[in-house]
Design a protein around this nucleic acid. Structure first.
Length: 680
RNA sequence: AGCGAUUUGGCGCAGCGGUAGCGCGUUGGGCUCAUAACCCAAAGGUCCGAGGAUCGAAACCUCGAAUCGCUACCA
């Protein structure tokens, strides 16, 4: 059961420093973070590193465009990225930068070793050069007319219109995307990494269980084509590391990017006493090293990277694990549809653990694309987490706290049933280990169903009313809360914040995986409070709306007057006229108002809006007597989506002011307004 | 164009040789402890299409379609 403690180093791919993190990125970070937390949860030493990828032409140009230095740009970017990751509970041990002393040190070491071992060659190549900017142009930065189909304004490497691929020198009327100047051909000496020296090593490596089978198939194909030299140098001006001893020549960003994993880890070693760089990177290292990546960068991580490491006397990764791309509602993320959702936009509207759960619930260890279906997302999270899992505690804790002073029974009954929950631990652990999170969640939710069935079967709400039924009620609820605790242990890698609140509720020390081996008996718990709110459709809609690319609006800084009375609610985010215009307010007459049987706060209103009558349930019982409302005119939102409520459909909403309780004041139009009038 | 992945009930997925399962949703019933939650039951599928090997396929092979992606000196 207790395997000896492992030493594991894990990375996620480095986000590029020229743009914000979006939810497509988050798929990878959440996947990795869950796996890392799982390992730590089980008592292994698992270190998680990452960094911003900061070098290359796009960074350089973007900084120029903004009129700042690249250093300023990447510092800004790192701050934003780190804030996003923190908010999503991504628990890096170190989030570093490839533009750092540590990265430079390792990069130079690797280059020098490759060079000394004869893996670097040089030759002169001819490339398009921008005479105005005095820089060589990457293919993407040359635009011109396609030599095949005459489509205008195409990239230098292929044509969007006819799909042809060509060299930028083939373009008709080429121009620099940077300055607009006509590029000229210019010679320059470039440095190449002799990838072909590693063909045999790579052939073996990719079939030795280090990568997924589908990826290995793909790599085979590349290997069959033969490996060629890899151009690893760029001429000044370039934002990156200068090649040692070669002024004006820089290392291509893709050489130093993965070295950023090592640089980040080195920085961590420098501030932690118990970590030794060589223990993780020496060629004979017995520790484990894993890279989580997207399938788009397989080439770099499964060919260049192991070759670079092997050629410079370092260990190769234990495994490189690729995942698929994220789609939203079945299609590629789109700015116009509002499905290009930035991490920050998501966070402005929704709890990060919703997304962590949804990703976990559908992730597997393969490279299939992952669809974030927003409707499914809402239903699944609400149903699984709030409806099933949390509900177990919600429906039993009340009895324990109110009737038994929070005390769980001294002996636990139903040991057989609980043993079933405990026995699932190994099975679930294996799923996590294999990155089959979806199966893990499925197994956990099957147990949650079982727990709810158990409660339904025992009917503690009836037991408590029976004479002498107290003991059994306490036993049933104690068993239920033990089930809840076991599920919490299993869910902890996915939902770290939520489980922290669960720990406070259960009044226990931080849970670790092996705590599943014992039960909570003769223990006092705290009062239950709602641990998670359901996802509201409105929040998803608002997030999508906020993601739609529109003309940039500068949201005015909202500075609440410092001496403002405290109960004034802050003004919500500024909206555009067309947002406002969606709301259809109407003058209506309350033709009928009545109490609703069984409802504490609601009144049922029948509203005449001129051409039809609407039924609306309004939470104003505490402030109005029904008869005082009948015959009054008021204002309603007439185009609000109907809402099925426990007592019937509510077909709109009546406007009212005030904080609630008896402080509620419905609106009245001035004299002269009549039924059905639109309010603007 | 080449290659890879995907295509199973409304939605999201599992199954990978013995003639279809799960969750959500829907419908009906039950319960009322619980965040309109929970429990029970039902309806719903020519498993993308066409061929083929097999006693037998959703699953294997061939051809085709659709979607997403990759194709190293783009990041």
């Amino acid at each position: 059961m207790t395997e000896s403690s492992r030493k594991i180093l894990v990375s996620s791919a480095l986000p590029y420093a020229n743009g914000p993190i979006h939810i497509g990125h988050m798929l990878e970070y959440i996947q990795t973070d869950i796996w890392v937390r799982f390992q730590q949860h089980r008592g292994h030493q698992c270190i998680y590193v990452c960094a911003d990828d900061t070098h290359g032409t796009p960074i350089m140009l973007k900084a120029q465009e903004l009129g700042i230095t690249p250093e300023q740009l990447i510092a800004e970017s790192k701050k934003d990225h780190k804030a996003d990751f923190d908010s999503f509970l991504i628990n890096f041990d170190q989030f570093h930068s490839t533009h750092s002393d540590e990265s430079r040190e390792v990069t130079e070491l690797i280059y020098n070793r490759l060079n000394e071992a004869g893996h670097i060659s040089r030759r002169t190549i001819s490339q398009l050069f921008d005479p105005e900017k005095e820089m060589f142009l990457p293919d993407r930065f040359v635009r011109g007319t396609c030599p095949h189909c005459d489509a205008e304004d195409q990239y230098g490497d292929n044509c969007d219109s006819c799909g042809a691929t060509y060299s930028p020198t083939d373009l008709i009327n080429p121009s620099s995307a940077v300055s607009g100047a006509v590029p000229v051909l210019k010679d320059s000496e470039h440095f190449f990494f002799k990838l072909q020296n590693f063909e045999e090593m790579l052939q073996k490596w990719i079939r030795a269980g280090h990568i997924q089978e589908q990826i290995a198939n793909k790599l085979d194909e590349w290997l069959e084509d033969g490996l060629r030299e890899w151009d690893i140098s760029r001429d000044a001006p370039y934002f990156g590391f200068e090649i040692p001893g070669q002024p004006g020549k820089y290392l291509y960003v893709w050489l130093d990017a993965p070295i950023g994993y090592m640089g980040s880890f080195k920085a961590l070693c420098n501030r932690r006493d118990n970590l030794n760089f060589d223990e993780y990177w020496a060629p004979d290292a017995t520790t484990e090293l894993y890279h989580f990546i997207g399938k788009d960068i397989v080439y770099f991580h499964s060919l260049f990277w192991p070759a670079t490491l092997a050629g410079s006397g370092f260990r190769t990764p234990t495994a490189v694990w690729a995942h698929g791309f994220l789609t939203v509602n079945g299609t590629k993320m789109s700015k116009s549809k509002g499905t290009f959702i930035k991490a920050r936009t998501y966070l402005d509207h929704l709890n990060p653990e919703y997304l962590r759960y949804y990703f976990a619930a559908k992730l597997n260890n393969r490279i299939d694309d992952f669809d974030l279906n927003l409707e499914d997302f809402q239903q699944r999270v609400n149903s699984d987490l709030v409806g099933k899992y949390i509900n177990i505690a919600s429906r039993t804790a009340g009895f324990i706290v109110k009737r038994f002073d929070g005390q769980l029974t001294a002996d636990c009954s139903e040991l057989g049933l609980l043993a079933e929950f405990q026995q699932q631990a190994d099975n679930i652990a294996q799923f996590y280990e294999d990155r089959e999170f979806g199966r893990a969640i499925k197994a956990i939710m099957a147990l949650a169903d079982k727990a709810n069935q158990y409660i339904a079967d025992k009917e503690p709400w009836k037991l408590i009313k029976q004479q002498g039924g107290e003991a059994e009620t306490q036993a049933v609820c104690s068993v239920s809360l033990n089930m809840f605790r076991l599920l919490s242990i299993y869910l902890k890698p996915v939902l770290p914040n939520l489980i922290e609140n669960v720990e406070a509720f259960l009044n226990v020390e931080p849970l670790s995986w092996n705590d599943h081996q014992h039960l909570l008996i003769d223990h006092k718990i705290n009062k239950f409070m709602p641990l998670m709110q359901r996802i509201e459709k409105d929040d998803i809609d608002a997030m999508v709306e906020a993601s739609k690319e529109t003309i940039k609006v500068t949201v005015p800084e909202i500075t609440p007057a410092s001496n403002a009375t405290s109960y004034i609610e802050p003004i919500k985010e500024t909206i555009e006229f067309h947002d406002f215009d969606k709301l259809d307010f109407r003058v209506v007459k309350i033709v009928k108002a009545e109490h609703v049987e069984g409802a504490d706060k609601l009144l049922r209103l029948e509203l005449d809006i001129g051409n039809e009558t609407r039924q609306v349930f309004a939470g104003i019982k505490s402030a109005y007597k029904p008869e005082s409302l009948e015959g009054r005119l008021t204002v309603m939102v007439a185009n609000l989506a109907p809402r099925k409520m426990r007592f019937g459909m509510s077909e709109g909403m009546v406007l009212a002011a005030g904080p609630g309780d008896s402080d509620i004041y419905i609106l009245s139009p001035d004299d002269g307004a009549t039924l059905g009038m639109s309010v603007k």
